[in-house]
């Protein structure tokens, strides 16, 4: 009788997954155990563990604060294609997007605090989307001063490309640092470029969000022009990316249109 009940329990597994999820709650507080969050998210089906129809061989999770709550950024990857899911502590997926990159350093990210694949700055929630800056080259314990960066609004149904820029170093050397400012203005925040990383000086370029046109309006000094190329969304030309499409495919044509040293405000075909 006891054996029959035991075997019956093993077949039905009543409450085992819920119990496991409850146990793993403590892992949200321990950085070395964050990957258990990814395991539970995949096991529960909240996060698709397959990449290109095969079970992804690699996973990772990190926990980031967003306003008054925290989210787990769960990445599954085969080191060629990666899917990032932004998951609440009750394993609800608020948004996800995919990346294609052959550079493992972009995916595994050796340095602390910077996650070039998914979020360089802390995530910000705005208008039902999670705003995040992602990089297209690995960052080695450095703020964004060189390479291509995309500012995304990540949602549950799709992601919207808000801003793309390419930063480069000039002679001297001179460079600009990309930073986010004024998040209380009701929009996704303004973006600034600071010469040689000097946040205490006035920005050499400012991209202010225009809520009426839903685009960034640029104010650029001569210093910044040779160091940055940029693209902005607009109300007439929004670029949305489906969750299973790689954002790299949306960003690449924009970057391809950037001149080597000219500042452009170009817009690709809508996707």
């Amino acid at each position: 009788m006891a054996w029959t009940a035991f075997l019956g329990l093993a077949i039905v597994r009543p409450g085992v997954d819920a119990f496991e999820r409850r146990l793993v709650d403590v892992c949200w507080n321990i950085p070395s155990e964050w990957n258990a969050i990814a395991d539970v998210a995949m096991k529960s089906g909240a996060v698709d563990s397959n990449i290109d129809g095969k079970r992804a061989p690699w996973r990772q999770a990190s926990v980031v604060p967003v306003a008054d709550r925290r989210l787990a950024v769960v990445t599954v990857s085969d080191m060629r294609r990666s899917r990032a899911s932004l998951v609440t502590d009750d394993y609800k997926v608020l948004g996800r997007f995919e990346r294609t990159t052959a550079d493992p350093a972009l995916v595994t990210d050796e340095t602390r605090a910077y996650k070039p694949l998914t979020h360089i700055w802390p995530l910000v929630e705005h208008d039902g989307r999670l705003l995040t800056l992602v990089a297209f080259a690995p960052l080695k314990s450095e703020p964004p001063t060189t390479g291509v960066f995309a500012y995304l609004g990540v949602g549950a149904r799709d992601s919207e490309l808000l801003f793309v820029c390419q930063l480069r170093w000039g002679p001297g050397p001179t460079y600009v640092l990309l930073d986010r400012g004024d998040l209380d203005g009701g929009g996704p925040g303004d973006l600034m470029l600071y010469a040689n990383g000097r946040r205490d000086a006035a920005p050499v370029a400012k991209f202010q969000w225009d809520p009426a046109q839903r685009e960034y309006v640029a104010t650029i000094t001569g210093v910044a022009k040779p160091l940055a190329s940029w693209w902005t969304t607009s109300s007439s030309n929004r670029v949305t990316i489906q969750p299973d499409a790689a954002i790299d495919d949306a960003v690449s044509p924009i970057v391809a249109r950037f001149g080597s040293d000219a500042v452009l405000s170009s817009r690709p075909e809508s996707r």
Partner: peptide
Amino acid sequence: WLAWAAAWRLLPWVAIDAF
């Protein structure tokens, strides 16, 4: 082995591996 197979299904392995 039967008992182990049954116990295996009832154990929270993700949490066990983590802890």
